[in-house]
Design a protein around this nucleic acid. Structure first.
Lengths: 219, 219
DNA sequence: GATGTAACTTAGGACTCCTAAGTAGTCAGG
DNA sequence: CCTGACTACTTAGGAGTCCTAAGTTACATC
């Protein structure tokens, strides 16, 4: 079992970054299927479930905001929302901030389903639950950096990540929790970073870059 | 900057596994959008591109095999294939193995587009290319373990992963490349594991479990 | 009051994806 | 040899996804 072709896999393998991409692709396949099935299980479509989940998670939003968060165009949202209104899952109300906008608020039934829909990605959490804590941390760190990169390229909607937030202070102390959130005035560690913080406020372009550099300096 | 609420993020944060799931969800969003856009850019639909990419990567397949790999039902494939035949991207030929099956082979034009489609997930590879090699290894290790878990649960089609292959011998030696592939008779390291090996042969259920245990013992 | 702007909505069309109901080869048993 | 089961598809029908393009409508500005 010593192996007759010691260098085989150095020469005949895709780079690890490409294999990471392949792996994420496979995981994406599972996500797509799961959300389809779970949504159908409760009598919704996948997008309808996502809309309800988002409204429950973030509070009332306008159609425009929804379309940005879910990465689809306004007409697509408009269509799904119409069905949700027909199903009495959401109600429209005037938005004080914009003239022609309407805030979408889930009804009791909609909120209940939205809460369930929020747990749809849980099957992935279960799939990583068996990893050692340190492996989870490393995995998470990779994801954070990858998402940040995708955001830079405009491939992912900028969403509530600590590392793009104006309240985030990276590496301001030593120890296990080197970062700081100025909003809640609390220290936090790299593995406590949020990806979907409700209090997130996007920092200015230049500040974002600076924060990121500071963060990477001792990530 | 000492922080007035030191325990805030211990108490008010989702578990790391849930945040990993959220992150993967966001990455999935980007994948969906990217494949839509890239496919449209070359005059295909997303599934059509995937079909061509799969045929280029794996050689001629039947409709059934395609439906299993892409995780959709046979009618969906059948429909897309009809369009691809109309577009002269693939041709059908008899399959010696099955009576009523037909092997799908890309034409020259189809193969060219399929080759391009294979590179669609590359934007993700680019997004992780900036990570330190060690971070990439850790990220990859998490992905491998996660996919294996998803396969166990039947949420992902069993695909050419070393860790489910009958030629894979985990942890048979010490050093940087502890595993061994009996097919090519070459040593390989954890970060060289393949997710999509064309020579993959699924090991029997019991052997799979044993191989995995052996692999995890010193992963 | 005309023009613009922002946030929708509607219309139309291509694709996705399913279930259910055919169809067509082959093979095994009688 | 013929019938029935099996397998691999195909067709039909229907809901949903997603886009672009073309309206609508409320308010803000000039």
């Amino acid at each position: 079992m010593t192996g007759k072709r010691p260098g085989y896999f150095e020469e005949n393998n895709e780079p690890i970054s490409a294999r990471i991409a392949t792996g994420l692709h496979k995981i994406g396949l599972a996500m797509k299927q799961q959300s389809w099935q779970q949504a159908n299980g409760v009598g919704l479509s996948a997008t309808q479930g996502q809309i309800l989940a988002t409204l429950v998670a973030s509070g009332p939003l306008t159609g425009k905001e929804l379309s940005e968060r879910l990465g689809v165009t306004l007409p697509t949202i408009s269509d799904s929302v119409r069905v949700l209104v027909e199903k009495a899952m959401v109600t429209r109300s005037a938005d004080p901030r914009h003239p022609r906008a309407s805030l979408l608020t889930p009804t009791a039934a909609g909120a209940a389903l939205g809460a369930r829909a929020r747990s749809w990605p849980e099957f992935m959490a279960d799939a990583v639950a068996d990893l050692a804590p340190e492996e989870q941390r490393a995995f998470f760190a990779g994801i954070v950096k990858m998402i940040r990169m995708l955001q830079e390229q405009g491939l992912v909607p900028v969403s509530g990540m600590c590392v793009t937030c104006k309240h985030f202070r990276p590496n301001v102390r030593t120890g296990p929790a080197p970062h700081h959130c100025a909003f809640v005035d609390a220290p936090l560690s790299s593995e406590q970073l949020r990806l979907d913080c409700p209090e997130h406020e996007l920092a200015a372009e230049s500040a974002r870059r600076e924060v990121w550099e500071q963060f990477m300096r001792r990530a």
